[in-house]
């Protein structure tokens, strides 16, 4: 079979709605696009645990502390599942798990803009669960249909756990809304702080070349803007129903065009944050990740040795 025939057969499989598996032949381009997406998704889960972990020791009650820890564990677990999927895609390219991890600490792979930002108050912890996890769920639920089987299977589990994060976040912000004026102020401040980051999270409005290719390969099925509009549909009414103000005076639903109009986030500032790890917390959190990776290398090594010793006995 020539390369063109293989490519054509592959596209036919996608057209029939078949899922692609790790051991199947796939175009190099498909492999690279998948790897880029899942690698970034995986490391973002891990970096997503950092702003939340900062709130574990400071959570107001034992119940909140336990829930927060559960969430941090989930995000690390999501990272592990996704890196496992990424690893199998990367293997034919000569990349290993170790490479995928060091790419993060050496700044060769990006992670989501929201995890570069500060979470200074307890209301931020709530808003992260409510709106950041909410935005992430829209993203991930849209990927459940992906053409890559191992990714689809892992996303099923991830989405189920994310729905707990969503409820947990909502519970925190509902408690604050029903609290004192100061607590409501704290919540409004947190919403103000996160709004622009949340809009950027879904990515540029225009469909980039890479995004177009991903849709063609059925790796994803929706555009960034479709997902952002979903987010508005679901969350704008809820945010307003709590008496909170969205920090965008121009935000409105255009009845004629059936879409939300909004003030665009500062695309340039946020892309620089993501591209150069230049956000307020990027460096700190990466330093911590590097510390964990390097200082525990001896443990990983020791375990390999004891594993080898076991198999001799």
């Amino acid at each position: 079979m020539t390369e063109e025939e293989r490519q054509a057969r592959f596209m036919e499989r996608l057209e029939r709605g078949e899922k692609i598996e790790a051991t199947d032949w796939m175009p190099d381009e498909y492999r690279r696009l998948l790897l880029k997406l899942i690698h970034m998704h995986g490391v973002s889960e891990i970096m997503g645990a950092f702003p939340e972990k900062e709130w574990v020791p400071r959570a107001p009650t034992l119940k909140r502390k336990l829930a927060m820890m559960a969430k941090v564990q989930d995000e690390m677990g999501h990272g592990q599942l996704l890196l496992r999927v990424a690893e199998d895609i990367a293997a034919p390219l000569g990349k290993t798990r170790e490479d995928l991890v060091t790419d993060l600490i050496d700044g060769r792979v990006k992670f989501h803009n929201v995890f570069h930002m500060e979470a200074p108050t307890w209301a931020d912890a709530g808003v992260i669960g409510w709106l950041v996890d909410g935005a992430a769920i829209i993203n991930q639920a849209a990927l459940l249909e992906t053409s890559y089987g191992p990714y689809a299977r892992v996303l099923k589990r991830i989405c189920a756990e994310e729905s707990f994060h969503m409820q947990h976040g909502e519970n925190i912000i509902l408690a604050l809304t029903g609290g004192t004026d100061e607590q409501r102020r704290m919540l409004q401040d947190a919403v103000n702080r996160w709004w622009e980051s949340l809009l950027f999270f879904f990515g540029p409005v225009e469909v980039t070349e890479a995004a177009r290719k991903m849709i063609q390969y059925k790796i994803r099925t929706k555009t960034n803007e479709e997902l952002r509009q979903q987010f508005f549909n679901k969350y704008v009414p809820r945010i307003r129903s709590l008496g909170l103000t969205i920090p965008d005076p121009d935000l409105r639903y255009d009845e004629k065009e059936k879409r939300w109009r909004f003030t665009p986030p500062d695309w340039k500032r946020f892309s620089e944050i993501v591209r150069f790890n230049r956000g307020p917390k990027s460096r700190d959190r990466i330093r911590l990740r590097r510390f964990a990776h390097e200082e525990q290398r001896w443990v990983r090594k020791a375990m390999v040795r004891s594993g080898a010793a076991q198999s001799v006995v």
């Binding site: 559960a70 564990q73 989930d74 677990g77 592990q80 599942l81 496992r84 690893e87 798990r97 299977r153 892992v154 589990r157 756990e161 990983r300 375990m303 390999v304 004891s306 594993g307 076991q310 198999s311």
Partner: peptide, 23 residues
């Protein structure tokens, strides 16, 4: 359920429980 990477079968069991049986 999926797969894990581990240095030994024992650690694989442990990681599997952490990954797939948190709830």
């Amino acid at each position: 359920m999926g797969s894990v990477v581990a240095p030994s079968p024992d650690m694989a069991l442990h990681t599997a429980r952490e990954n797939f049986l948190r709830r």
